[in-house]
């Protein structure tokens, strides 16, 4: 490191600004991370230290078994199981229907193509609050209200995935498909053996988006579900948070555990996801 006193005044000012900038952004990084630390510390504190004021920044002991205790209370295992079912099924459905439809829109000519695509695209900006009452009523009529199916199916009608899929599959060279046809492949073989293996970044992107959205969603499960046995993690957490007496040990432990699946999915699919974002040119 250069000697700060041997610098020109201008250079010194520049250097000091640089240091200040670093200190500031480093402080902000700590602010961003602090609530995570606070979740962890609150989760493993002895219960009497939760009620200590001033708050104890470092617990006298770490009771890791609090995580297990939290899971035993308030039906959390059921909530987690429901969230897994909802997220996994939604993700599979989303990937399948959007790959198929995206392929059709990208590589086939058929009557009504433009119309159907515009119809879907025009719904991109519709807020849930506009459709949620009719969808709630339709779900009641067809008997999927207050079931996990009711949580899974309706939000699958979403334009973003189809839009991405069409964009992505358009980039597959037509020659590849024609060559397959000449070799006598059936239409479905073309899809399963040529299209699907060539769009792995697309699949990763769809998986990450769907998992993050569905696992984290509160509003739709809240509308669809009324029985505790069907609740998802977010719905369970949100309800407990509003209760008269909140056990912060349990809340923070369950919150922390609930974050893990999303992070795991993110880490697994991240590399291809970044590729997907870069090549599709879509930000965010």
């Amino acid at each position: 490191m250069k000697n700060i006193f041997a610098m020109e005044p201008n250079e010194r000012k520049h250097f000091l600004l640089h240091v200040l900038g670093f200190l500031f952004i480093f402080l902000m990084a700590l602010v961003a991370l602090f609530p995570f630390y606070w979740m962890l510390v609150t989760a493993v504190k002895p219960i009497n230290e939760i009620f200590a004021f001033p708050p104890k920044l470092w617990p006298s002991q770490f009771i890791w078994s609090n995580f297990a205790t939290a899971m035993e209370r308030a039906n959390f295992p059921v909530y987690f199981k429901n969230s897994f079912i909802v997220t996994a099924s939604s993700t599979i459905i989303t990937v399948c229907i959007n790959l198929l439809a995206g392929y059709a829109f990208a590589k086939y000519d058929f009557f009504g193509k433009e119309f159907f695509f515009l119809l879907v695209l025009s719904t991109l900006m519709i807020p849930l609050q506009v459709t949620m009452i009719p969808v709630f009523i339709i779900a009641s009529k067809i008997g999927i209200r207050n079931t996990l199916l009711g949580v899974i199916i309706p939000p699958c009608a979403e334009a973003f995935g189809l839009f991405m899929a069409r964009q992505f599959i358009s980039d597959i060279p037509n020659e590849l498909l024609e060559a397959g046809r000449i070799d006598g492949a059936t239409e479905f073989t073309l899809f399963s053996k040529i299209v699907v293996p060539n769009v792995k970044p697309l699949i990763s992107t769809l998986v990450i988006f769907t998992v993050m959205w569905r696992w984290n969603d509160l509003q739709w499960p809240l509308i669809m579900l009324s029985n505790d046995e069907h609740f998802t993690v977010q719905l369970g957490l949100s309800n407990l948070n509003a209760a008269q007496y909140v056990n912060w040990n349990d809340m923070m432990a369950a919150s922390l555990i609930s974050v893990i699946p999303v992070i795991v999915v993110f880490l697994i699919f991240q590399r291809q996801f970044v590729e997907g974002m870069a090549s599709s040119g879509i930000k965010g």
Partner: peptide, 20 residues
């Protein structure tokens, strides 16, 4: 292509277009 877009379009009709 109609077969391929069918699942998506049915969902869209029932849970998006008609509700609007």
């Amino acid at each position: 292509p109609y077969l391929y877009i069918l699942p998506n379009m049915v969902l869209f009709m029932v849970f998006m277009i008609i509700p609007i």
